[in-house]
Design a protein around this nucleic acid. Structure first.
Lengths: 127, 127
DNA sequence: GTCAAAGTTTACGTTAACGTAAAGGTAATG
DNA sequence: CATTACCTTTACGTTAACGTAAACTTTGAC
């Protein structure tokens, strides 16, 4: 009794729908070297790995990352664990990314506080 | 005995330096209606209010806000408290902004976790 | 008075991230 | 077998957010 594990695949249209974007955009990401789907004849075949990459791209976009920046992150995760200098570079990149995210986090906290303040002013004004 | 309170003012160069940007950019924000500095002859004179607006713009940029979006926020804070429909619109805007920021916040948390995971993998790999 | 530093306007150039259109291939459906 | 729904490539168009250059004024320092 064997368990059949078929690798999940996706069409470009499915992914466009799932991530609320367009096929044009997804092909563009391929142009820019962010994904490299396989082909079945002419047609692009996306793996779950491709799908995750697109998810990462979209998350990046919501945070204001350029595609180039997202690509750096993607490449970061795809570094084959080889030599030490590579590793060092990766760790530095991780540090930089983390710092950026933490800065954004405090920016968000401040903006949330300011929004709340303003909301209260307006609500008080309504009475 | 009177206390002299001189309103702080800034030149475009000073602000460009403080926010690590260019005078061109600041003039551009004026073009787009985000700030309206006074003039002393030809020269622009920036108030502390203008300075705060620029601060908000920069924070917005770090979070991936377009200038149009930042302008909405700025206008939001500048709504003269008048009629009720205005107030309602303001509160709706506040809600939308908050939701966006909260989404970004969770995006950040996820990315931080993923970074940490990857960092650990790489570090383990180095041994 | 002239020189340098900072300010001004006008205007064309540039990059990122797709949008949009045209022209065509393929596969299931009635 | 023709229509419909997706897929493909190629290529030009568009918007945001300034960069860059040119040509000119203003002002404090020497």
């Amino acid at each position: 009794m064997t368990i059949q594990m078929t690798a999940q695949i996706f069409t470009i249209g499915e992914l466009a729908q799932e991530f609320d974007t367009t096929t044009r955009a997804i092909r563009f990401y391929e142009d820019q070297g962010l994904i490299s789907p396989l082909r079945e004849g002419q047609k692009r075949i996306y793996s779950t790995a491709d799908r995750i990459t697109i998810k990462l791209i979209m998350r990046g976009k919501r945070l204001g990352f350029s595609l180039a920046e997202s690509k750096e992150l993607i490449d970061l995760y795809n570094t084959e664990g080889d030599n030490r200098t590579q590793h060092v570079r990766v760790l530095e990149q991780v540090k930089a990314s983390r710092e950026r995210l933490l800065q954004q986090k405090t920016d968000i906290e401040i903006m949330l506080l300011e929004l709340e303040e303003h909301e209260n002013r307006v609500k008080a004004d309504m009475k």
